[in-house]
Design a binder for these strands. Sequence first.
DNA 1: TTCCTAAATGATAATTATTATTAACTAATA
DNA 2: TATTAGTTAATAATAATTATCATTTAGGAA
Lengths: 150, 150
Amino acid sequence: MRYLNTYIEIKNRLSECGLKATHQRIVIYECLAKSFNHPTAENIYESIKPNNPSISLATVYKTLDTFVSAHLIHKVFSDDGIVRYDAYTHPHSHIYCINTKEIIDFEDENLNRLIQGYLKRKKIKNLKIKDIQLQILAEKVNIKEKVSIK
Amino acid sequence: MRYLNTYIEIKNRLSECGLKATHQRIVIYECLAKSFNHPTAENIYESIKPNNPSISLATVYKTLDTFVSAHLIHKVFSDDGIVRYDAYTHPHSHIYCINTKEIIDFEDENLNRLIQGYLKRKKIKNLKIKDIQLQILAEKVNIKEKVSIK
DNA sequence: TTCCTAAATGATAATTATTATTAACTAATA
DNA sequence: TATTAGTTAATAATAATTATCATTTAGGAA
């Protein structure tokens, strides 16, 4: 499922998860859903602060943790020791730009099928595979331009 | 290159990197090289403490950081907000066991070639790919047994 | 609509993980 | 052996996250 778009969708999903649909939760989720740069809790806090000065950093941490437990969002793997988040829960991979520190979403159904097929043919015992993501370590050639994948 | 094995090899590699081959560095590197479970700095500190009570935690952090900068070891991607390390720098992937919290090394040259070939045929602009790793999210079926991959 | 209460929040303290500082130590070169 | 730039230990400081608790509130029942 892709990230939730509207207030009603978010509200409904929260209720389905047995969670109260508070204003803070809606704001935090919307902020993350609009962010494609896999922000930290602190990033989100700074982002919502101008329009929501009373939401505390502790609330942001607590709320993100609640969302992760409810599978509304995912944590992103990183190696910098800071937890980052992703509202886009549909299976996808990430491109880690070494020089710009960006983490870019990357999605390719064909490649997924290729890898899954290969792993199925491999004899792996005592393991149940849930998800496969690629970690593509790369460098942006021109820092000012966007990465383009076709 | 696989992880370094002997005192002499470690000593030589440190010198090649313009680093002094101190006792602390040798001990920390050896500890990591023997660990296949991608330990944290704290894990390594606890591990070496019995035989090296005077090596401080700050030294362990500093030394690991130095090793990473010198490409002697790598950081492992994780989503728990704690930095983990890997002495095995040869390109490989990881299996993340959701239920046991283990991170298991996984290596398959054929699969690597398959993915690299696929991505080369894909039109990716403004990006220079350096390394591709799989993040396999899985569950151990029988927690007490080992995972086996053929 | 009102009442009720379990869940949620804000403020802040506490904890955990990591880095900075600085005096003292030492690896390795001359 | 002497020298010194690099390294370390101890500890303070910082950064990231979680715990605590009084107060607030979403949403269901009446």
